[in-house]
Design a binder for these strands. Structure first.
Length: 489
DNA sequence: AAAAAAC
């Protein structure tokens, strides 16, 4: 290669001293230029230092730790068939199953020309194939915490020789109550090891975790955390709660969105919206924690193959998932946690492409909107969206009188008397555009009645579930740690 | 307030 006359500061992967087998895999993946996090992290990880990294997936974070890990394990890679020659040397933990699967696919592709073996284990699927693979021996293991502990207990995983630990999306893991599991896992690892912690934010809890388990870490921070990509256009649409479904259909059609992830705050809401969209001719499917792992994987695969227009998701899909060329994300609900907004819209506009983040905001979500604007430190453009044809479905009866009364009361209470710019009061700054008095429109949604009907339908269609988890958890004895410490509120 | 994660 003749890159003698490099006039720009453009670097290549050659500069890191990675093995040819790794560089070949990188090239085959189509990457030529390291991203900022890769340029910073790779040398530090290669040097064996602990890392405290602030970066989201999509910044090239996975490669930033995978490539140097493979390099560091390479001299010890054995072509021997003996499992004893393939102890777990690198462990990568992620908060969600889909993220584990995705990281594993990346690691697999970067290591494909080496003798290193990798595997992924997570819950919701048969343990046996995972156990078989672990018994054959893997050097790099990607896992969600619960299933990993299960394997440890089954003695199919031995963590006694782990040299490198990665905590991916560490803040998310803490949010999800994984701290006890993390502590158990960390106690199984050799003290002498390298630890890499990646987190979108450096909260007090994260800092405490780092202080406990990292040794003199190098802090690496690309793009300020909580910032949103500039190539993502963010628009907030004011809509009445009951107009949201119609609004989604309208946005998809008006903007000719080939593919979109629609985020909902609840599992039942996601399922319901997916069904409504289907009835309106949008090919849609839901992905959330109440679906089987098989359904979740099928939904994601079908979406990635382009067979599905709208993937209706809970925050299980908010973080880390990498879907190529996703043109838009719609927030059907504004997230309660403002940080989740940043993660959700980070699913679009990846790898330098442009993307649209379209958020529906009903009057009772103003606090969430204010929280988001505070977090991202700028106001969002708010537009009013006139929903031409509110979606009504045949099973949905006309709202009973009571609903109409409620609706009228709501309109009245929301209205600012004599205010020209409408009823949508936003305390901190002026809006980008004036707003109609749309709450005075005759259409009154009846979300509560819709919800009841659909919840009843969903409940009757849902498979039988065990009555209670308590007795089962008790049977598990010492292993069954509470997944969550009830932090009362 | 809701989501996720082991059987």
């Amino acid at each position: 290669m003749s890159d003698t006359a490099v006039t720009t500061s453009t670097a290549t992967f050659d500069q890191f001293g990675l093995a040819p087998d790794i560089l070949r895999a990188v090239k085959e993946s189509g990457y030529t230029t390291p991203t900022p996090i890769q340029a910073q992290a790779i040398p530090v990880v290669l040097a064996g230092r602990d890392v405290m990294g602030a970066a989201q997936t999509g910044t090239g974070k996975t490669a930033s730790f995978s490539l140097p890990i493979i390099q560091r394990l390479l001299p010890q890679a054995s072509t021997s068939a003996s499992p004893a020659r393939h102890p777990v040397r690198a462990l990568i933990l992620t908060p969600t199953r889909e993220l584990a699967d995705q990281v594993a696919a990346n690691v697999q592709s970067y290591a494909k020309h080496t003798a290193l073996r990798s595997a992924v284990v997570f819950g919701g699927v048969d343990m046996n194939p995972q156990s078989d693979q672990l018994r054959r021996g893997v050097e790099i293991l990607i896992a969600t915490p619960g299933r990993l502990l299960d394997h440890v207990q089954q003695k199919t995983a031995n963590l006694g020789q782990v040299q490198i630990l990665v905590l991916d999306e560490a803040d998310r893991m803490l949010d999800m109550g994984f701290l006890p599991d993390l502590q158990r896992i960390l106690n199984l690892l050799p003290k002498e090891r390298q630890t890499l912690l990646f987190s979108a934010t450096f909260s007090g809890e994260i800092k405490k975790l780092a202080a406990t388990y990292l040794r003199n870490p190098q802090t690496i921070e690309v793009a300020r955390s909580n910032s949103t990509a500039t190539n993502v256009t963010q628009i907030v649409y004011e809509v009445a709660e009951g107009d949201k479904t119609g609004a989604v259909v309208q946005l998809i059609r008006e903007r000719s969105l080939k593919q979109v992830i629609v985020f909902c705050n609840s599992k039942i809401g996601a399922s319901r919206l997916a069904r409504s969209l289907e009835r309106d001719g949008v090919v849609a499917t839901a992905i959330h924690g109440d679906r089987t792992q098989n359904e979740r994987m099928q939904a994601l695969d079908a979406f990635k193959r382009g067979e599905i227009e709208a993937l209706v998701a809970t925050d299980v899909a908010a973080r880390g998932l990498d879907i190529a060329e996703l043109p838009a994300v719609i927030n059907f609900d504004l997230p309660f946690n403002a940080e989740d907004y940043v993660h959700r819209i980070g699913r679009t506009g990846r790898a330098g492409a442009s993307g649209d983040a379209l958020s529906l905001c009903s009057p009772n979500e103003r606090k969430q909107l204010a929280d988001i604007e505070k977090l991202i430190k700028r106001p969002l453009e708010v537009q009013h969206l006139t929903v031409d044809a509110p979606v009504r479905h045949h099973h949905e009866e006309r709202p009973p009188r009571r609903e109409r009364v409620d609706g009228r009361e709501e309109r009245g209470s929301r209205r600012r008397t004599g205010a020209p710019s409408g009823s949508f009061d936003r305390p901190h700054h002026h809006r980008a555009q004036p707003v109609d008095d749309f709450f005075l429109k005759p259409y009154v949604p009846s979300p509560s009645s819709v919800r009841k009907i659909e919840e009843a339908a969903a409940a009757s269609a849902a498979p039988q579930k065990p009555a209670s988890k308590q007795p089962l958890a008790a049977l598990l004895g010492g292993f069954g740690m509470p997944r969550k410490t009830p932090s009362s509120s």
